[in-house]
């Protein structure tokens, strides 16, 4: 037991062994005396003459009897792995997600073949299938030339009208309106 205590002083004991040693020290006054002696001789060998402190620990512990017991909630995040996750991996993950999000927006905006949503009004005779709505949304894939022409038109329109209250976002906002023919 004392040899393990000596090894613990030198950082050569794992967590489980040191926990076991502290449990034992709590019950064993002789082992506490060994702890005292090892502390003292280490101080003397390292730093030379030491102040005589005989009985000091007993006096402090006697005063502690009048003190309420310290109770603090046990931390669940003091292990290295969760700390590593929180401080290193999460920022990296957030950066990757940010790049993916921006990349997704860019890819979506540059995709010429994507379906375009247009709003049309139902014709009186063709409304049978959707006759409960006054208008509905359908997908259509306009020809490439139409898409390019619309983009050019919108770019020219934005250049003429200037930026709105949110200039950076305005260029991505497109509005299309159509009037149903009577």
């Amino acid at each position: 037991m004392k040899e393990k205590l000596s090894a613990m002083f030198d950082g050569d004991a794992d967590e489980e062994t040191s926990r076991m040693l502290f449990d034992r020290i709590r019950r064993d006054a002789a082992l506490r005396g060994t702890w005292d002696a090892y502390c003292l001789l280490g101080d003397v060998v390292r730093s030379g003459a030491q102040p005589g402190m005989e009985g000091f620990v007993a006096r402090v512990m006697s005063r502690l009897e009048a003190e309420p017991t310290v109770l603090a909630p046990r931390r669940t995040e003091n292990k290295s792995a969760p700390r590593l996750l929180r401080h290193r991996l999460l920022p990296v993950a957030a950066s990757v997600m940010g790049v993916l999000a921006v990349g997704g927006v860019v890819a979506a905006l540059s995709d010429e073949e994507r379906p375009t949503l247009v709003v049309v009004s139902p014709s009186p005779d063709g409304a049978a299938a959707v006759n409960t709505a006054s208008s509905f949304i359908v997908d259509s894939a306009p020809p490439r030339a139409t898409g390019v022409a619309r983009r050019d038109y919108l770019a020219a329109h934005q250049a003429m009208t200037g930026g709105g209250p949110v200039p950076a976002a305005v260029q991505y906002v497109r509005t299309v309106s159509a009037q149903a023919e009577e």
């Binding site: 502290f22 506490r32 702890w35």
Partner: peptide, 28 residues
């Protein structure tokens, strides 16, 4: 890490563990 383990024992209600820290650091 040993000191931290003692601190956590004290925080768990083990008063005597504090004596080990007193013994260790009294002269310093």
């Amino acid at each position: 890490e040993i000191d931290q383990q003692l601190v956590e024992r004290i925080q768990g209600g083990d008063k005597q563990a504090f004596g080990l820290l007193v013994s260790k650091y009294q002269r310093k």
